[in-house]
Design a protein around this nucleic acid. Structure first.
Lengths: 254, 254
DNA sequence: CCAAAAGTGTTGCCTTTACACCCATGT
DNA sequence: ACATGGGTGTAAAGGCAACACTTTTGG
């Protein structure tokens, strides 16, 4: 919700009073950023004085909403070219319950204090490549296990839930993993990712068959050694085939 | 895009100059309203001086975006309680190419002339229950065959395409028809609806089995008479079961 | 040699598809 | 009677789930 990254304190007042010259009023973007680590699905959250929230920002007058979302992601994760998908706009009237202003004279009727409709995005990022970035205004920025997300400000808990829902639905007919896993990964790792997102256990052997049938994976000759059992092969995604599958989906019955 | 229904000419200037006191700036809702008639999928379009568009409107400061969309639908179709679903927000910077102001002094820098992000909805309505309503500003309002939609203003052609896509996708795991067909309908009619939306032919017998397996239909004792062949039964939706199926979806593999 | 877990294959069920046969109506 | 299109059934095919067996490592 807040576009306040990399802003100096003296700029804040200007932002509150003049922000509507730069940004579209009443409109924000919020990103539910998913990562995968230690067999756990994670979301990146930011802490403000008011509490934890999902990272978000405002839409500049000269950028599209998608560009705004990309910018927010870049600011928070340092990552470019990540997988990003719009999933829902949230526009209830009372959605920002508890919103607080800043203790700066003349700013209590700032554009920032007005009602906002936010456009929700979910993003998939490679956990290890991200260094969560707080800024001077936010107190903290870190990963949270999806099952341990705290009470968030406004309607952000609902947004996270809806994003997870959207991600799961996407998973049904689109391959997932390109953006969540390192370049090389083993089949058990990929399976763990799927199980974590879907929240169910899958059969090891059938999973492998289904994945290979999707025709988006390439098996390398390398294997993960150092484990006291038969070493698994490393796989990587075939970018071309992966993207084709992402586009077309894997349409089912009818 | 335009919330100008039922507005008198002298109100127009006030709307252009003071509309931002009532509505959220930069934000609109647009509805792709689908109907079904003569074995054809139809969309409701509105004609302005600038050309044809999908019906839309602005968001009042005291209403949610969903309420705004419902209001627009009510204004255009007279219908309440219709099936309405948000599917995508459109926020490219140049999306309103060709937007024209009104020939009223002092209104050329109206809030209305600024950039808008629009939230797209699709709706299903029962064709026969709708009386398309034009107002004094719009020149016309009528149904168009989905395959014969003319060049629309702004990016509305893209919005229609995306809406159809969303409707088709929805069709895959949700029953459709409750809002598109009259209360009683025959199986061939329902099939025709599905074929029209999906744009493919389906096997008559397998379609019937699949539909009945969904467990949302009830067969009545009545049959459509007056045709020179075996008369088909009338069916109706079981509201409770239908809504359960809509909610849960008919989740598939994994 | 054993435990652990990965790779590969097979079986059977269940869903989907393709198609045949009969039925009821208007002309 | 016949043309037309609806209602019902059934057999083949294909996809998916359940499960067995083999393989390869570290200890």
């Amino acid at each position: 919700m807040l576009y306040l990254a990399a802003m100096s304190k003296k700029d804040l007042k200007h932002f509150l009073l003049k922000g509507q010259d730069t940004f579209l009023k009443h409109l924000s973007v919020d990103c539910v950023i998913f990562g995968f680590h230690d067999d756990q699905l994670k979301v990146l959250l930011v802490k403000w004085v008011e509490g934890w929230s999902i990272p978000g920002g405002f839409v500049r007058k000269d950028e599209s909403i998608n560009e705004a979302a990309k910018r927010v992601l870049k600011e928070r994760t340092g990552l470019d070219r990540i997988f990003l998908k719009q999933f829902e706009a949230f526009g209830e009237t009372g959605r920002e319950k508890g919103k607080k202003g800043f203790d700066i004279p003349g700013t209590w009727k700032s554009w920032y204090m007005e009602r906002f409709v936010t456009i929700g995005y979910w993003a998939l990022v490679e956990f290890s490549k991200v260094t969560p970035r707080r800024d001077w205004l936010s107190e903290d920025c870190r990963w949270w296990d999806i099952n341990e997300v705290p009470k968030l400000i406004f309607d952000h808990n609902r947004i996270v839930t809806a994003a997870l829902e959207a991600l799961r639905h996407n998973l049904i007919d689109h391959p997932v993993g390109y953006n969540l896993l390192p370049e090389k990964f083993t089949m058990p790792e990929l399976q763990s990712l799927y199980e974590t997102i879907l929240g169910i256990k899958l059969d090891r052997r059938n999973f492998q068959k289904k994945m290979l049938a999707m025709d988006v994976l390439v098996r390398t000759n390398e294997r993960r050694m150092g484990v006291s059992h038969k070493p698994p092969y490393y796989y990587r995604f075939d970018k071309k085939k992966y993207e084709r599958a992402m586009k077309n989906g894997l349409m089912r019955s009818f």
